[in-house]
Design a protein around this nucleic acid. Structure first.
Length: 201
DNA sequence: GATAGGTTGGGCTTGTGGTT
DNA sequence: AACCACAAGCCCAACCTATC
């Protein structure tokens, strides 16, 4: 009897486990994030210590999102039958992803370099005009406050699309939604943000 | 009935290869 | 180099279904 169960498990085990992983990620993403959040923050902080402050200023938030995304991807690709812990794999992948991002920004993509030059130019102009600088800070604060009114999924979609430049299709694949649904959630979230900002003006 | 989500198809943009 | 045609990808709206 035991032999049959073992044989069956060897054949079906990974499929069952993967199914459970998908269920957990679909229904308990917040709990998963909060379970790993402390260790995740330690990894991010440790990596951020190796970066110059001006890079942290512009890319700090991106690195957090990238690490979170990579954690989810690690859980998806983790084989719990042969590895007890997902964390060593996740840790390795998160560090790799953050390094890749910085490497990508620094030399890989000319278009991002162009964006970066533009951003720096804007920063410079803002720096030279104190009133605009204050307005920018106020606006950033308003957006941050408004973002707090969105749920985790909405925040993630906006962040992934606007800041990380991911397409709705890619975002959908990562959170198990269709491209269209991501588009709808994105649009709805933007409307919510606008309303929230308008209400506070 | 309201809401969330999937499918499908159309409009638009961008990339690519061929032709002049 | 400039132009054109086509393909592919992206986003969105309309419609439909499932769930509460």
């Amino acid at each position: 009897m035991n032999k049959i169960i073992t044989k069956l498990w060897n054949k079906m085990g990974l499929t069952v486990v993967n199914y459970v992983k998908v269920l957990v990620l679909e229904n308990h993403l917040e709990e998963v994030n909060s379970f790993f959040s402390e260790r995740l923050n330690i990894i991010i902080r440790r990596y951020c210590r190796t970066l110059p402050i001006h890079v942290l200023d512009t890319e700090g938030d991106d690195l957090v999102s990238i690490a979170q995304l990579e954690l989810i991807e690690s859980i998806k690709s983790w084989d719990p039958i042969h590895n007890d812990e997902v964390w060593p794999l996740a840790q390795m992948r998160m560090l790799g992803a953050m390094r890749d991002h910085i490497r990508y920004l620094s030399k890989a993509d000319p278009s991002r370099l162009y964006e970066w030059v533009n951003d720096q130019a804007s920063n410079y102009i803002e720096h030279r005009t104190p009133t605009d600088h204050a307005t920018t800070f106020a606006m950033q604060d308003e957006i941050k406050q408004a973002m707090k009114e969105l749920d985790d999924r909405e925040r993630f979609i906006i962040y992934a699309h606007v800041k990380l430049d991911l397409t709705f299709k890619v975002i959908g694949e990562r959170i198990n939604l269709s491209e269209s649904q991501v588009s709808r959630v994105y649009k709805k979230s933007i409307t919510k943000l606008k309303k929230s900002i308008d209400a506070n003006v």
